[in-house]
Design a protein around this nucleic acid. Structure first.
Lengths: 180, 180
DNA sequence: CTTATGTTGACCGCTCCAGTAGACAAAAGA
DNA sequence: TCTTTTGTCTACTGGAGCGGTCAACATAAG
C-alpha cells in the first residue's frame, strides 16, 4: 500500500513551496527544497518538471530563478497529485473510480474482495480528496509556531540574494555512496 | 496505493477456501481455485506455499489432496495477510506501526506530510485489521443466496472424486498469450 | 560575458513483480 | 507394485519501474 518515493517527494516539495509562499517568499530554488528535505536534487528536478507540466507549479529561469505554485493552495488536493504521479488510489483496479478496470473474478457483484477493497479505497479517497495543500500548510505552520520551532525559508527575498552556501547539497549527493 | 497481484491472489484464494469450507467442503484443490478466479496455477502455487508457511492454510498431498484453512476464519485478518505478502500498510514507512523507519525530513513532529499520511494509514488499518475472513465469507454467501446466484464449490466431497474435466485450466494458461 | 539557475533528454543499475518450467514426493486406487 | 493425481521444491526469466546520475543547453541577472 505504499506510495512511491517519487510521489512522496512531490508532496514534500509542494508542501515546502506552500510554506515558503505563506511566509512571504514568492520563489523557492530547487537547491533549497533538496536541502530542506534532503532529497537527491536531480531526481527532484524531474518531479518538479512533471508537476509543472500538470499545472501545479511554475518556474522562473536564470539567476534568481526558482519554483512557485501555479494555482491557489486551496485547489491543490493530495489525491489528485498522487493520482498524477503514482496512478489510482484504489488498492485493486476493479474498485478504482478514476481508472476502473475489470478483474478476473467471475462475478464482480458478489466478490468479497471487491467489497472490502471498495471500503478501503473510499476511506483513502475520503482523506486525500478532501484535504488541500492549504490545510496542511496551515496546520504545519500553526504547530511550528506553537512549539516555537525555527521556521524554514525565513528571510523572504533577501536570503535568495545571499552568496548561497550550497556546498551541503553537492556533498550530500556524494556522501550517500556506499562501500560496495 | 496498489497491492500486488501476489497479495490480491492470496486474498482471493483464502476467501475461496473459506467459502468452500463454509459450504461443507473440507479440501479445495489448487486447480479449482485457479479455475474459479482464473489465475495462473503455478504462480498461485507459490502463494499458497507462502500462506502455508505462515500458518494460514495447510495441505494434504496425493490423490484427493488439496488445501484447507489452518486456523479459524475469525482469526484471519486481512491486514495481517497483506502485511505478510506486501509489507506494511502505511503509505510511507515513517508512519508504519509495524515497521517504522525514519524518513529524511528534518523534523518528524512538524512534518505536514507525515500528519496526513498517518491519517491515511490509520483509516486503512482500521478496516483491514478489523475485518476477518469470517466476516467476508459470511457477507459474500448471504449476497449470493439473496440474489440466487449459483454457489461455487458445490457438491461437497463427491465432486472431488469425479474424473475431473480440467482441460479448461490448461487451455486457460495458453489462451492468455498475446500476439506480440 | 560570466555566472547561477532551470530544461531537456539520455542513460543506467538494480530490484522486484509476475509468471514459467521441470523434476520430485506423497498418497490413493487398480 | 504401478499408475495417476495431487502437492512440493528449486531454478529461472522477461520486463517494468524505481531511484537515481550525467552532460549539454537555454535563459536571465549583474
Amino acid at each position: 500500500m505504499k506510495i512511491s518515493k517519487r510521489g512522496e517527494y512531490a508532496l514534500r516539495a509542494l508542501i515546502d513551496i506552500g510554506i515558503a509562499q505563506e511566509l512571504g517568499r514568492e520563489l523557492v530554488q530547487i537547491n533549497e527544497l533538496a536541502q530542506q528535505e534532503r532529497l537527491p536534487i536531480k531526481f527532484l528536478e524531474q518531479i518538479l518538471t512533471q508537476l509543472k507540466e500538470a499545472g501545479y507549479v511554475d518556474s522562473k529561469r536564470g539567476k534568481l530563478g526558482g519554483y512557485f505554485l501555479a494555482k491557489p493552495m486551496k485547489k491543490i488536493k493530495f489525491g489528485a497529485v498522487i493520482r498524477l504521479i503514482d496512478g489510482p488510489l484504489a488498492p485493486i483496479s476493479c474498485v478504482s473510480v478514476t481508472a476502473y478496470e475489470r478483474c478476473t473474478c467471475p462475478d464482480e457483484a458478489h466478490c468479497g474482495l471487491r467489497m472490502l477493497m471498495l471500503d478501503v479505497r473510499n476511506s483513502i479517497a475520503a482523506i486525500l480528496d478532501r484535504y488541500t495543500l492549504a490545510d496542511t500548510v496551515e496546520v504545519t505552520l500553526r504547530k511550528m509556531r506553537r512549539d516555537k520551532v525555527a521556521l524554514p525559508f525565513l528571510g523572504g527575498i533577501l536570503r535568495a540574494q545571499l552568496p548561497a552556501p550550497l556546498e551541503f547539497v553537492k556533498q550530500n549527493a556524494k556522501s550517500k555512496r556506499k562501500t560496495k
